[in-house]
Each structure stands twice: as structure tokens, then as C-alpha cells.
Write a protein that binds this DNA or RNA. Structure first.
Lengths: 201, 201
DNA sequence: AGATTAACCGGAGAGATCTCCGTTTACAAC
DNA sequence: GTTGTAAACGGAGATCTCTCCGGTTAATCT
């Protein structure tokens, strides 16, 4: 009973209706442009809906909430980034020793945060319920690397602890209020990573 | 010219009018009770105002915004905590070696986050503009300790990095989703602190 | 006590987030 | 083409945060 006519495409939500897909694209496009024009800080979904000639309900049905829309906006770049550290050239991708990959990964994350500051600030603020998909991926990846680099430690916790200082709020604060440069931040992280991967059990 | 009649009390905002002080107390009291009853998650300043028999404007004039009210609610406990690590008995207070004080401090911070989870979650979410007063104090304190424990490193950055994993969001996630215990979190932090304070330049 | 005034008060209102539900529409089956 | 229906649509509305401003009051000076 209740058999489906066409087999579902795995991972895809059963095919999206044409109007739905069109609206999704339009909303993302309009939102991206609004952010380019007036910054991410004051992105209003009401306004996005109006500019996209779509009801507010539609925006929320497509993306769930603010965080969902921001996640969708980041998605493209995020995919590329993930493929880089999962299967790209070393030292970020496989082929380099684990401890070097750890540092390369943390540095790449810093660059990503700096590049997407506005959107990530918004995302971090709004993301109270679920944990972001990207974070989960980073954590799995870093845990694996740390497991190789220092097999005796609690790699899962260390991964959380190394990821924690790489967030948009803190980095913005360090750069704007503390006057730190990106290089100083990266070198601090490298120091931390080195200490962790070299230390005894 | 423009001389003041009575010298201002240093640090105090020039004395608060009686009705203003009464309202401040009432608002804090009502807010604390509402949180005790229904959790911090859904604290509405509108509702607080209504329950305190006060206009919304009054709440915002007294506390600035949500973050301000939450900060005021935390204040008491916070003062005590600060005096403990600034002038209380060792190993938290002065008297113990710096590296032991670092660990004691981080552990005390974890306990504080666990004890105040609800309010701190709210605070972290709302605190986008200014950085919280408490954080600044923690950072100064930890930077000083790290400066003693490992004079060669960038103590200011390490302080940020060690404080970053001690936030309500992450700890709630680690406990609820990852199933970690408080002891596991503390031991992970201790490991990290040890690695940092022992590592070479 | 009476007058003066700076500080405070209340609550309407702007603008935002998100929900709900009656109406409309795309698509598949016939 | 017609038809049936699940999915999508739109936008009014419930709440919330925070601002603004005309009216009120506590504290001070005479």
C-alpha cells in the first residue's frame, strides 16, 4: 500500500515542484543581491519576500528560518571547501602527515570565516536549535586527523576545542577590537595545534 | 563652569532616583521568578514589563536590551565568582602555581556555565554588539596566569582559545547530543591547558 | 511650602520573525 | 482535455524587540 509511482532520488526530497524550485532560486538570488548591496547584518526575510514577489510564508516553507536561508546562501562555497579538505591536494587534502593537515585545515577555516564574516555572524546568532551541518563535518574530519596525530588523547573533545576559537564573533572581535592580524590568529592556532599533537597522554 | 553640587560616587551613575531604583528591583525580581517558573528560553521583556506593572519603555531604559537584563540577573553570582578567583583561597585564588590556577579556573568556569546554562544561552545569543563585561575580566585574568605559566607564548591569544570552548552552546551540545559528562569536558580542558603550558615556544 | 527641572514613566507604534489556513496550482493518471 | 490531489502559495495575524515622545514625578533650591 501507499507505493510511490516513481522511485525517489536518493538524498533528494522526492523532486521539487517546478514553481517551488523557481521560487527557491529566486529567493536565494534576491537575498544574495540584497546582501551584496547592503550587508548581511540587516537581512530581513520580510523584505526578501517582497523583493522576490513572493509571500513570506513561501520563504519560511522553503528554508525553515533565517538560519536555513543563510545556510543555503553559503552552500555553494561550502561544498567546494569541503571537497578541498576531503579530496583536494595536500597539505589540506590527503597525502600530507596528519599534524600538518590539522594546521592546514584550521588555517583554511580561518580564511573561510574571514571571507564570509557577515553571513557567518548571522548564522551563529540564529543557530540555536540544531547544530549546523558544516560543523558536524568539520568535527568528524578533525577528529579523524587528531586520532592519527595523537592516538592517546580524546580526539573528539580536542576537535571541539580547536574548532571553538574559529568562530565569526571571536575572530571579528580579535581583529577589530584587539587589532590582531589574520596571521597572528593563524599562528596562535598553529601553536595550539602543535602543543596538542605533540603532548603526551 | 558647570560644576556639580555633590561629587559623583565613582563608578556609580550619579545616584538613581527612588522610583527608578524601585522599578529596577521589581523588574529583576519578576524576571527571576518567571525564569524559575518557565525557563529562561522564552523570556519576553514585554511579559516581564506587564508582570512588573511597568511600561515596556521602563524595562528598556533600565537595562538597555535583553542582554542587559540577563547580565543584571547574573550579576550577583558573577561578583562572587570573580572575587573567588581574584582573591579567594587557592588553587582558584592566588597562592597556587600558575599552571594549577589555570586548570582550576577553567574548571570553575565550566561549573558556572553548567549552573547558569539557561541564562547564558540567552546571553550568548543576544550579545552581538558589545563583548560582555565578564568575558573581558576572564580574559585579563587568564592572560596573566598564562603569562606566568608559559612566558614565551602569545598569552592573550591562548586565553581566547582556552575560553572559547567554555560556552553554553557548545557545552550543552556536548552533554546532550554527544553524551559527554562534565568530568570528561573538564579533563579534556585540563589536557589542553597542560599541553599549552608545557609546550615550548 | 512652593517652584523648578532633570529624570522617569507609559504605551503607542515601527518593523521584524514566524505560524496558520483558505485558496490556488502543477503534475500525473485517465 | 479533464480531473483529482498533494503540494505550494500568499498574506493576515500573533508576538516580540526596541524607539519615541508627551505627560508625570522625585529631588533640590529658595
Amino acid at each position: 500500500m501507499c507505493e510511490r509511482r516513481s522511485l525517489p532520488i536518493v538524498g533528494q526530497p522526492q523532486q521539487e515542484r517546478a514553481d517551488a524550485a523557481r521560487n527557491r532560486r529566486k529567493i536565494i538570488e534576491v537575498a544574495a543581491q540584497m546582501i551584496a548591496e547592503q550587508g548581511a547584518e540587516e537581512l530581513s526575510l520580510d523584505e526578501v519576500a517582497r523583493a522576490a514577489c513572493v509571500g513570506v510564508g513561501t520563504v519560511y516553507r522553503r528554508f525553515g528560518d533565517r538560519a536555513g536561508l543563510v545556510l543555503a546562501l553559503i552552500d555553494d562555497r561550502e561544498r567546494r571547501f569541503q571537497s578541498e579538505f576531503l579530496s583536494g591536494p595536500p597539505p589540506l587534502g590527503p597525502g600530507a602527515p596528519a599534524d600538518r593537515r590539522v594546521v592546514a585545515f584550521l588555517h583554511a577555516l580561518v580564511d573561510r570565516v574571514v571571507a564570509q564574516q557577515g553571513l557567518l555572524l548571522l548564522l551563529e546568532k540564529e543557530m540555536t536549535k540544531r547544530t549546523s551541518g558544516p560543523y558536524q563535518v568539520y568535527h568528524v574530519h578533525l577528529t579523524a586527523l587528531l586520532g592519527q596525530a595523537c592516538p592517546h588523547a580524546d580526539a573528539a573533545y580536542l576537535a571541539d576545542a580547536l574548532l571553538a576559537p574559529i568562530n565569526a564573533r571571536l575572530i571579528a572581535f580579535q581583529r577589530e577590537e584587539r587589532g590582531m592580524t589574520i596571521e597572528e590568529i593563524k599562528s596562535g592556532l598553529a601553536h595550539l595545534a602543535r602543543a596538542v599533537t605533540c603532548a603526551g597522554p
